[in-house]
Design a binder for these strands. Structure first.
Lengths: 148, 148
DNA sequence: GCGAATCGCTTGCGTACGCAAGCATATTGC
DNA sequence: GCAATATGCTTGCGTACGCAAGCGATTCGC
């Protein structure tokens, strides 16, 4: 508890939970999507050709493969996503973002940015934001696939 | 996307998700509790007299009151928690940590600290950790009830 | 005081998730 | 070549959660 590493990890979780809880409400109200659906679209946008195999998407989002199946199904129905089967390996089913999906992501991203502004807003100097970014980049580094 | 606030918010969510996912596995395997149960015990530990009204606990944990009811029930059964009714206001039901609950928290906290060490470990200088702590403290400030 | 609104907690119902089993496709060992 | 194994995806089942309704207890308006 006097350990600074522990304190910072706890604060990290708390800030992230607070931020996510705020996002969740506005996303469902304004854009009709969940935070996880937003992150799914974002992972696709950050990948080559706007598509990823379902199992890879699951790994990056820390969810099970079955969750991807069940999350993608309704998003395909409303036209945000499409599916493509790999030519070489018929086991691989790619999740693809449609134009509508990318547009939805773009809208949601502006809401996200607005709330990110609220979060850091006037509480932080530019120099601090740079240091913060540097810190977070290193913490993500081990994970491999970066989202930002 | 070129916005540093947005980038940092995304990284914040990603680091927190990664860390939480890692914790989740070790907590259930080693201590037999979930991350949320751990946080519940921690909120009690950080409060006066190791007890909080259920509704207050719900607010701090960003969950609904019904979730507190359903989370506390099995923890009472195995002796980690107890319940106390307020003398003045019979509507208030306090969630209280038992000695067993505080012991369980202590065990889990050492696992938490170990993983916090892995997270920041050799990636961060002491001075950076201080800046990081200062940053996170300000980001939590608006929320009110601090966990760390 | 006393009805009405409020508050805290619990319960029914629908939704989202993980795990294990099952199926189809690929790859490996021989 | 052909079993045996491994990989990717989906489906059944159990669990955790939010929302809305309901029930006691309290406070407010008058």
């Amino acid at each position: 508890m006097t350990d600074l590493h522990t304190t910072n990890a706890l604060r990290l979780l708390q800030v992230a939970d607070d931020f996510r809880a705020g996002l969740s409400g506005e996303f469902s109200a304004v854009h009709g999507i969940s935070v996880n659906e937003f992150l799914l679209l974002l992972h696709l946008e950050r990948s080559a050709a706007n598509r990823l195999p379902r199992v890879e998407l699951a790994r990056r989002m820390h969810v099970s493969a079955s969750t991807i199946t069940r999350m993608a199904a309704p998003m395909e129905k409303i036209g945000l996503l499409d599916r493509e089967v790999d030519e070489r390996d018929a086991r691989l089913v790619f999740v693809v973002a449609t134009n509508a999906g990318r547009a939805k992501l773009s809208e949601a991203l502006s809401t996200f940015s607005k709330r990110a502004g609220y979060l850091f807003g006037d509480r932080c100097e530019d120099e601090e934001m740079d240091q913060f970014a540097s810190m977070l980049r290193r913490l993500i580094a081990g994970t491999g696939d970066t989202l930002a």
